[in-house]
Simulated assay, not measured.
Amino acid sequence: MRHLFSSEGEAALVAALQYQPLLAFDFDGTLAPIVPRPDDARVSLAVAGRLSQLMRWLPVAIVTGRQVDDVRERLGFVPSYIVGNHGAEDEADPAVAQALSEALESARDLLAQREPVLRAAGVSVEDKQQSIALHYRLARDRDRARQVIDEVLQGVGPALTIFGGKLVVNLTPADAPDKAHAVRSLVARSGAGGALFAGDDLNDEPVFATAPPHWLTIKIGREPPQSRASFFLENPAEMALLLERILAMLPGRISR
């Protein structure tokens, strides 16, 4: 990966904007910094203000692991689209969202049975309907907490998918749409000619790995070095600067 604030990155940004792209962003670790308590996460006024301005020219989407209703109040602006639960919760298709929630009933039963063991290890269970997150950021012994999670989830069948994140383990139905599916669907729905997508975690990698050549993909942070994103930003603090650069490029370049 190369830093987006480079001559190559500047050229890629200019090229991507020629396609009048959907601007799509993860939330935690991308638009908002990771914080010890997820309930404290918010988009800064600078980032929210720039995203609101950008919507005069381009569609803006939030594609997050959080529930739609959870993230909506944390943004400080109203985006064109929000897709939650790692791509599985799309307000445009409530029937699919309901079916995916029902597919997690066996996992809910298992986690309820093992709740005392998980709680003793410092693991908190967050049921987001279309996915379930097992958080261990606040555990005293994170290695032990992750071991307990792995032991508990050995009872999960093949109908469910398990994937990690930043001090969290996620469960989704195996046939649930992922973020790559979500972004492709939003590009088609919005009529955009492509996408600029920024994310920071493992659940963003499907977008990076499957993006067409004219999309611009941005990893927040340098790790892991094997990320399939085209460029990186050092941290969420650089997001406001990126959005400012996009705004500066738009007048005279894009007409709607």
Rank of each mutant, 00 (worst) to 15 (best):
A46R: 02
L23T: 12
R108K: 06
P116S: 10
P158T: 11
A11C: 10
P251M: 01
L202H: 02
P116L: 13
R256W: 00
R66H: 10
G164I: 04
S124K: 05
A103T: 10
A120L: 15
V43Y: 10
P158N: 06
I246E: 11
D150G: 03
F197E: 00
I218Y: 03
P94L: 01
L243D: 09
A240K: 01
A237M: 13
V123C: 07
A32D: 04
R256K: 14
R37I: 11
L160S: 05
E89N: 05
E238C: 09
E151N: 03
G157Q: 11
Q98C: 04
S44L: 13
D143F: 07
T172K: 13
P59G: 05
K128G: 09
Q154Y: 02
R222F: 01
A120R: 15
P173W: 14
E223Y: 06
T161D: 04
A16G: 02
R66N: 13
A145S: 07
L4W: 01
N170H: 15
P206L: 04
P213Y: 12
V14H: 04
I149A: 03
D70W: 02
E105I: 10
D109T: 03
R140E: 12
L23S: 08
G164Y: 00
D143Q: 15
A24C: 10
I132H: 00
